Simulated scan of single mutants.
Amino acid sequence: MNRHAMIKTLFKSLAAACLAATLTACSAASDQAAAQDPPLEGARIGGPFTLTDKDGNEVKWSDFDGKYRMVYFGYAYCPDVCPLDVQRMMQGYKGFAKSHPDLAKQVQPIFITIDPERDTPAVVGEFAAAFSDDLLGLTGTAEQVKKAADAFSVYYQKGEVRDDGSYLMDHSRGAYLMGREGEPIALLPVDQGGPQVAEELEKWVH
């Protein structure tokens, strides 16, 4: 079984359970939404980068101008946290899309690797597709990835290499919601669950 199939199998039951809860949370959030300042307003997060998609095409941060962006940094070989976080992020997005299909089209979910040594365009493409066709997986050279991570204040470091050549990546955990002009809006609560992510999207995507 390849990585794509394993990830889909692992989260199949979780996806079904989360979706119903996500839709409920979306409705509640819409009723309770109130005008307020974005939590990350004015923060120095985000900035120009150039990376590569699954087909080897160049992708720039400016390509998303005019759209909201959900951005998560992780790596495809992560055994636990990354796939769980991305699953919850996309559950939230899907729940939001059910309630607001037109607005969801103006949001681009993005996964950026912090392990370019192993995460080739094909690997990040396979990883992203396991969660949603709407999730864009990006990689690049070590220098390009570092520039993107630095722009988002993301910490990462390669762990000790084992005898079989495998290793883990130590990295900070966070998913960012960015605005139409690339400005930081809020952290998405991927540690809490899909319903909470959907609720946060309800607050800020208009």
Score class of each variant (00 low, 15 high):
Thr141Glu: 10
Gln108Asn: 14
Lys67Thr: 13
Arg88Tyr: 11
Asp55Leu: 11
Val59Gly: 03
Asp102Lys: 14
Asp164Cys: 04
Glu58Trp: 01
Val161His: 07
Leu187Trp: 12
Met178Thr: 01
Ile110Phe: 11
Glu160Cys: 04
Lys94Met: 12
Phe96Tyr: 14
Tyr75Trp: 11
Tyr68Lys: 12
Leu138Phe: 03
Gly165Val: 06
Asp134Gly: 00
Tyr68Trp: 15
Gln91His: 13
Asp134Ile: 06
Phe152Tyr: 15
Lys94Ala: 14
Gly125Glu: 00
Val190Gly: 05
Tyr167His: 09
Ala149Tyr: 04
Gln87Val: 06
Phe152Trp: 06
Thr52Cys: 04
Lys60Asp: 11
Pro83Phe: 03
Gln144Asp: 06
Leu187Ser: 10
Lys105Phe: 07
Leu187Gln: 05
Ala104Glu: 10
Ile110Asp: 06
Gln196Glu: 15
Leu177Met: 02
Asp63Tyr: 05
Leu138His: 08
Phe152Asn: 02
Arg88Met: 05
Lys67Gly: 03
Asp55Ile: 03
Asp115Met: 06
Ser62Leu: 03
Leu135Gly: 11
Pro189Trp: 07
Gln106Ala: 14
Ala129Tyr: 10
Asp65Gln: 15
Tyr77Trp: 13
Ala198His: 07
Thr120Met: 03
Tyr93Gln: 05
Ala129Glu: 15
Phe127Met: 00
Trp61Met: 14
Lys60Ile: 00
Ala104Ile: 05
Gly194Glu: 08
Gly182Asp: 12
Phe111Leu: 09
Gly66Thr: 09
Val154Gln: 12
Asp80Met: 04
Lys158Arg: 15
Val154Ile: 14
Leu136Gln: 12
Asp65Ala: 15
Glu117Leu: 05
Ile114Ala: 10
His100Pro: 01
Gly140Glu: 12
Ala104Lys: 08
Met178His: 07
Ala129Ile: 03
Glu183Leu: 10
Leu84Tyr: 13
Ala148Thr: 08
Leu188Tyr: 07
Asp134Glu: 14
Arg162Glu: 13
Pro101Phe: 01
Pro79Asp: 11
Phe131Asn: 02
Phe152Val: 02
Lys146Met: 09
Val145Gln: 00
Tyr93His: 12
Ala149Phe: 03
Gly193Ile: 00
Phe131Asp: 12
Ala128Trp: 08
Ala175Leu: 01
Tyr176Asp: 11
Val86Glu: 05
Asp65Val: 15
Ala151Met: 03
Val197Asp: 02
Gly137Trp: 00
Asn57Cys: 08
Tyr155Arg: 02
Cys82Asn: 08
Ala151Phe: 00
Ile185Thr: 05
Pro83Ile: 09
Thr52Ala: 05
Gly125Cys: 00
Leu103Asn: 13
Glu126Cys: 02
Thr139Arg: 02
Phe73Glu: 10
Val81Ser: 10
Tyr77Thr: 15
Met70Asn: 05
Phe96Leu: 03
Gly165His: 09
Phe64Leu: 07
Gly179Met: 05
Ser132Arg: 01
Arg118Ile: 08
Val190Arg: 08
Asp115Asn: 08
Leu103Lys: 15
Gln196Phe: 11
Arg162Val: 02
Gly159Pro: 03
Gln144Thr: 06
Leu136Ser: 11
Phe96Cys: 04
